[in-house]
Design a protein around this nucleic acid. Structure first.
Lengths: 122, 122
DNA sequence: CCCCTCCGTTTCGATTTCCGAAGCGGTCAC
DNA sequence: GTGACCGCTTCGGAAATCGAAACGGAGGGG
């Protein structure tokens, strides 16, 4: 349940996701995360560090811990679902003139993913 | 990527999760979600409806769509990870007197889950 | 009928979180 | 020295969230 709290915060999932291909420094990571504000970034980073999902290398870059790697892998099915979701939703709602959506939840686009991964290839 | 946005909002994952065992009405669902505020609840519900992850039955209860079911299933590995996480973190940090955690991310507890599921049993 | 309970939903003011830009001290190349 | 990048902090304003109250409606009991 606490996991839903930790990951239910803005950007936490994204950070986990962006760290999948290897360690990143503060600012590079920030850029990858749609240039999120540094204040929130630091906050999420602290939370994830505290949760032992990530840790900091001697050169101060952030990296997924083994536990973090597992979490990222656990996210894979969700990523896969997201693609199916995009395929299901997008074709129908691509051009809604009638938008009373009441929320700015960007509908999925065939937006690049590129998922470089790096499972056991290092 | 849009999925990370949709589910990165507070309570959205939780709602998806609490709907796993079958349809629920507004107030019952609200109670299950740690009594979240009704305003946000309605907002999340609208977003999820719009995303076609849930839909509303004639008796006005909310239920996962097939797409929503898939999403919930995609969440399973994460739930599984959460347990491992709890087992890893909790034993060591159970009694931190030194708490400069800078955030109120409730550490996982051996908190009940009870996950009744209901995959193909109906 | 009235009263009481539960329901889905909306509204509104108060609190919390998030944003965004600026700034700090530090390292390295020029 | 100057300029570019770095990790990280601070702060005021915007946006998300909360929490409680309220609405009309459905149902049950007296």
């Amino acid at each position: 349940m606490a996991a839903l709290d930790l990951f239910g915060r803005r950007w936490s999932l994204r950070i986990l996701w962006e760290l999948r291909a290897g360690p990143l420094g503060f600012r590079p990571l920030q850029k990858r995360c749609d240039d999120m504000s540094s204040s929130v970034m630091r906050q999420r980073l602290t939370e994830l560090l505290d949760a032992q999902v990530i840790h900091q290398l001697p050169d101060s870059r952030y990296e997924l811990t083994p536990l973090g790697q597992e979490a990222r892998h656990a996210l894979n099915p969700l990523a896969h679902w997201a693609e199916r979701w995009a395929a299901t939703i997008d074709p129908q709602g691509a051009d809604r003139t009638d938008d009373r959506s009441a929320s700015r939840v960007s509908h999925p686009d065939t937006v690049g993913d590129g998922t470089p991964e790096r499972d056991s290839a290092d």
